[in-house]
């Protein structure tokens, strides 16, 4: 059991990359879900396996309702993705060390070639954002041509999850290094943030106080989901602001 004072102490430890999601301007259009699937070569699970709860999305729009029938009120749409916790519950349980914490980028990694498919990490994740490849799902002819070469195509039997588009992070860092400079805030963003028509998602460096994402995160009424578990998530939500 983690005592509250310990959480406060360790909360001073900030990650590197972070996200701010404004639920008030999210329309729930699912553009982020589609963009994420395209960017990260996510399989199309199909109706049957989705019915078994085997759907694979690295980001999903959660909807909740308040009140009893006829006065039902919908709460704001809640995009849920891997929170890239600084103290992640998925990491210590992996018997194969396939889900490890990146010291360089401060992200939770999923190393596909090391994963043996115990699904322990997915069961231990309080946000339920990890998805398991139950099959090698087919990609019908035109769709097989849109695979992103920068991302591994996962096979049956491995766990996968949001990577904060680490391929884009590496690409931006590589470009900046080739030009002999640092990565500029807003130079690149994740696929979900790029696709969001309402600009509800902002991505950037949370350890840089000048970046847009840390200035948004410091507006005051931000919420981190399940913070009481001591996971130290890197995604901040705004609701009812």
């Amino acid at each position: 059991m983690i005592r509250p004072e310990e959480i406060k102490m360790s909360a001073e430890h900030v990650g590197k990359w972070g996200m701010v999601i404004d639920q008030d301007i999210c329309t729930g259009c699912q553009a982020c879900v589609a963009a994420c699937a395209m960017e990260n070569n996510i399989s199309f699970v199909g109706e049957k396996d989705s019915g078994y709860g085997r759907s694979m999305h690295w980001i999903r729009i959660e909807r909740f309702w308040e009140g009893e029938y006829p006065e039902v009120k919908m709460t704001p749409n809640q995009p849920m993705l891997c929170q890239q916790c600084n103290s992640a519950t998925c990491e210590p349980v992996c018997p194969a060390f396939a889900t490890v914490h990146s010291q360089a980028e401060q992200l939770n990694l999923q190393i596909y070639n090391r994963c043996v498919g115990t699904r322990y990490c997915g069961n231990n994740c309080p946000y339920q954002v990890r998805s398991f490849n139950w099959r090698d799902y087919e990609r019908p002819e035109p769709l097989s041509n849109q695979l992103n070469p920068d991302v591994t195509v996962r096979r049956m039997g491995v766990m996968e999850k949001c990577t904060f588009c680490i391929q884009r992070i590496h690409k931006a860092q590589d470009k900046a290094k080739a030009e002999g400079r640092e990565v500029v805030d807003g130079e690149f963003t994740t696929a979900c943030a790029q696709a969001c028509p309402a600009s509800a998602i902002t991505f950037g460096r949370v350890d840089d106080p000048e970046s847009l994402v840390s200035q948004l995160a410091q507006r005051g009424h931000g919420l981190k989901h399940l913070e009481e578990l001591g996971t130290l998530p890197n995604v901040t939500y705004f609701k009812g602001g």
Binding site: A104, E105, Y112, N113, V151, T163
Partner: peptide, 12 residues
């Protein structure tokens, strides 16, 4: 050393 031995540098 941290960057060059990080899993996420080559596997993602």
């Amino acid at each position: 050393l941290v960057k060059l031995t990080d899993c996420g540098t080559c596997h993602y």
